[in-house]
């Protein structure tokens, strides 16, 4: 049984189709890159995985359970902008991941100092401990996104959703963020969906690259048909497919 299962999902805004006949099976621990032209519905698809929007038809299950109708702790999200809380210090942004689960949103006593230590460890790892007491506005774009990813991870989600997380960063920062994300993923082995405009980035980071496009196109009425997943590339092994044996061949097996 696959971990994330999408079955004939469609999404309409009014009578206008955005996505139609989307089917997808994803195993736990896979890194999925979603690419496609602007307005092809890949961000809409991500929002449906997040449960911020509900599909018009079809069903999405995560770990065998259907989505509940609202975002929850099982799926973390990092947006391109507005991903961290501007009114909390960098440390408090990480602590929020545990504090927000309490009744009033504040930790007390031992739990508080424990969360503080955990947050400091996390900040040490992502190289932000020197700005722990500052507000996010004082951070560069790359540092803010690192903080946003660390914050999402602190809630220990099963699935991490990234909506063009590095879209606003300069190329150098982007490369270091790729390394950061790869390391993090190797460590946790979590399932990741990432929307990106950068094909190279998609292939570099992803195990699979899904292309969203419209299979049918009416020149008189470009909005008549919705998009779906038109290609599903195997992006492992540097994008060269068929490098792994998937069935029992009894050949070249060391005994």
């Amino acid at each position: 049984m696959s971990f994330v299962s999408v079955t004939s999902v469609s999404k309409y805004y009014g009578s206008r189709p955005i996505l139609e006949h989307v089917n997808l099976e994803v195993s736990e621990g896979e890194f999925i890159s979603l690419v496609g032209a602007s307005g092809c519905g890949k961000s809409t698809f991500l929002r449906m995985l997040l449960d911020q929007e509900r599909p018009t038809g079809g069903s999405i299950t995560v770990d065998g359970r259907p989505l509940t109708g609202e975002p929850s702790q099982s799926r973390g999200i990092v947006f391109q902008r507005y991903s961290v809380f501007p009114h909390m210090s960098v440390r408090d942004n990480i602590i929020a991941a545990s504090a927000f689960q309490t009744t009033y949103g504040w930790l007390r006593g031992a739990a508080k100092s424990q969360a503080r230590r955990d947050a400091d460890t996390a900040l040490e790892r992502i190289g932000l401990s020197h700005v722990a007491d500052q507000y996010p506005a004082a951070l560069s774009g790359g540092m803010q996104q690192r903080l946003a990813i660390a914050q999402a991870m602190a809630a220990k989600p099963r699935v991490l959703l990234l909506d063009e997380p590095f879209g606003a960063l300069d190329p150098g920062t982007r490369l270091s963020m790729h390394a950061f994300l790869s390391d993090l993923r190797d460590e946790t082995g979590m399932t990741v969906f990432m929307v990106t405009h950068d094909l190279e980035e998609g292939f570099k980071l992803g195990d699979r690259v899904l292309v969203f496009d419209k299979p049918r196109w009416d020149p008189q009425d470009p909005e008549a048909f919705g998009a779906t997943i038109t290609y599903d590339f195997d992006a492992r092994d540097g994008g060269i497919p068929y490098q792994r044996l998937t069935e029992e061949t009894h050949v070249l097996e060391p005994h």
Partner: peptide, 13 residues
């Protein structure tokens, strides 16, 4: 708000 929900925050929080 979406982010807060993914961190497990209730409406009150």
């Amino acid at each position: 708000f979406v982010k807060a929900q993914t961190l497990g925050a209730s409406s009150l929080v």
